[in-house]
Write a protein that binds this DNA or RNA. Sequence first.
DNA 1: GTTAGCGTTGGAAACGTTTCCATAGGGAGG
DNA 2: CCTCCCTATGGAAACGTTTCCAACGCTAAC
Lengths: 367, 367
Amino acid sequence: MRQTITIKDVALRAGCGVATVSRVLNNSGSTSVDMQQRVQAAADMLGFEFSEVGRSLQSSTTRTIGCVVPSLANPVYADAVQGAQEYFQAAGYQTLLVCTNYDTEFETQAIRTLTAKQVDGFVLTVSDTIFSEGLKSIKSRGIPHCLLFSMASDDEQSWSVDDLSAASRVSDAFVEKGHIDVGFLALKFKSSDRARQRYQGFVLGCHRNGMKKPALLEINEDSQELTSFLKDFLQKNPTLTGIFASNDFLALATIRSARALGLNVPGDLSIVGFDGIEVGTMVEPSLATIVTDPKMMGRGAARTVLSVINGTSAPVLPDPKLTFSFRAGGSLAFPAAERADDEKAATLSPSNNPTNKNDKIQQERLK
Amino acid sequence: MRQTITIKDVALRAGCGVATVSRVLNNSGSTSVDMQQRVQAAADMLGFEFSEVGRSLQSSTTRTIGCVVPSLANPVYADAVQGAQEYFQAAGYQTLLVCTNYDTEFETQAIRTLTAKQVDGFVLTVSDTIFSEGLKSIKSRGIPHCLLFSMASDDEQSWSVDDLSAASRVSDAFVEKGHIDVGFLALKFKSSDRARQRYQGFVLGCHRNGMKKPALLEINEDSQELTSFLKDFLQKNPTLTGIFASNDFLALATIRSARALGLNVPGDLSIVGFDGIEVGTMVEPSLATIVTDPKMMGRGAARTVLSVINGTSAPVLPDPKLTFSFRAGGSLAFPAAERADDEKAATLSPSNNPTNKNDKIQQERLK
DNA sequence: GTTAGCGTTGGAAACGTTTCCATAGGGAGG
DNA sequence: CCTCCCTATGGAAACGTTTCCAACGCTAAC
């Protein structure tokens, strides 16, 4: 078992040379009808399938694309990967997937491995465009690639949301509802281009709108619990009326934590998210957020890579202004006159807090 | 550019034969220190990396696993894929991903392609274990594989939730809260083993608990809108007090639709989901559901495949009773004396309904 | 001094394909 | 009848690796 049938077996059975089998089965070169039938019959009988490995060696092309993303737990990446994979599939390319878990060491290693596997191209979300070893090596080797949700340099394309403008738009939404003093909440701030971009855009927007410079609450991955961090944060910033979370999962978790602290959302604290994942419309109050289209981004990146591979002209990137839109939601409203008493929060039963196990799962999600 | 450096180039530069280069760089056979240094230097200077294609041809092994799932839009699969991918990665295997979109035609085609790519094994969620052409071909070729969330036959392993028992457990939960007449809601019922299993288990459980046989509401993918279907369903089953949805997204969507119909959840209608996705704990009321651990399942399936490949003994599957647990939630409670008036629902403003675009996205999700 | 054995090395085959080139056969046109 | 060309076919090289085998030089033992 498991011994594969090669073109030689077919040739032997059909009583011809391997070249003829190749020609018949690939419809290349000229062959007689008689021979076509004999070869076809032999191939069918043996259940022959070409080995892509042999082909790849000969053609020095693998029809495989490496796809590197931080994680699939975040639906943004999951959708993007799905979009890219579908596009590649339709074009006859396979997708080699790697999740880096936001680990740059891993990222470098993964890119090296995929390069050795001779992928024809890459679609990647790197944690840091400038310092990525892997990206550097891809460029130096001249392997076709396209970035996804990452900042591009001049000589390459990137399909990504205009984080700067989108975050700035969020500040508009806050100021429209009368907020002056709001904060920014991010997980893995250090290792994410995106979170930094969003913060930067938010700071600029707040400044432009005459608001206070937003305070930054950064959670590192081994923080035990969002709720207690949030509590500290709010105590340090007593006049804060809103929080912009750097992604929707974080925003939903923040709503939950705020409630656990006895706060009313949006009365005591307004929350705005980023990404526009669909459950945001199902919760009560619905989540105000920036809506994006990750699947389209994934497809776009796939198109770009294939265009580089085929030497056709690259697709035009979407207008940055159209890479996102703001979705109003019940989680953002005019602030109440006064925030609920903090004492109340302190007396809240601990049983309202999420269990340890759930918290662990949640932490993975939030990345 | 893009001309690759081969072992021959290194040999030439180091002034030795290719065999020696291979031995040095792979630490196999015996080599002199002098030669080691020369080869290493030459390889470094040229930036040489082995071509996996050449290796694969020679070793007839690709260190690549095909991973076939319906979709990444469903976090259950996304998590499972991530779990499997991580395990494979750690073991030095790469993951070739295909999403079938619940299309059996696609599934068959994808498996054929991956077979041609000479993957060393498969992890797959097929839509129908018995009739899957692809699975048949994998078996007949004797390619190592492991099923994931699919029913296995005797000669193979499957890592999956005990859908039957889990669904039965849901009926227990309903009856504990005094429900007698409940329904089952599924999307893609026809093309999903899993939905059918869950319905079957639910029917059995309800019978055992002395409840009515649950009515089945089946939504096909081009249904325009859940809300109107739900309305019809509730009118046809006026005494219904609860609904078991075949997955959490569907459950959340059902809560939203019920609200749009002016119903109170859980007062007028209790909802229970399946899968235990994490946002279920963030919504208000929290979603009662069956909790599963897809990432663990993915890891497990990966372990099984590798054990088959390496000829080591297969890991023991988890006790079926431990593949799920029930999580109580606010969406399941004792029914109110009487359901809210249907008239009220009819007069509800249509602006409360989700927009078309969101509905489309939602449909994909629900799969 | 001869030989056995060991450490080191290179040549070549093999893996499965495609494709170039050569060859053979046959029909048409001179 | 000879030549030319066109179609159909097979042999063989090439793609990049690993590994078997042979060969070479050396040391140690007889």
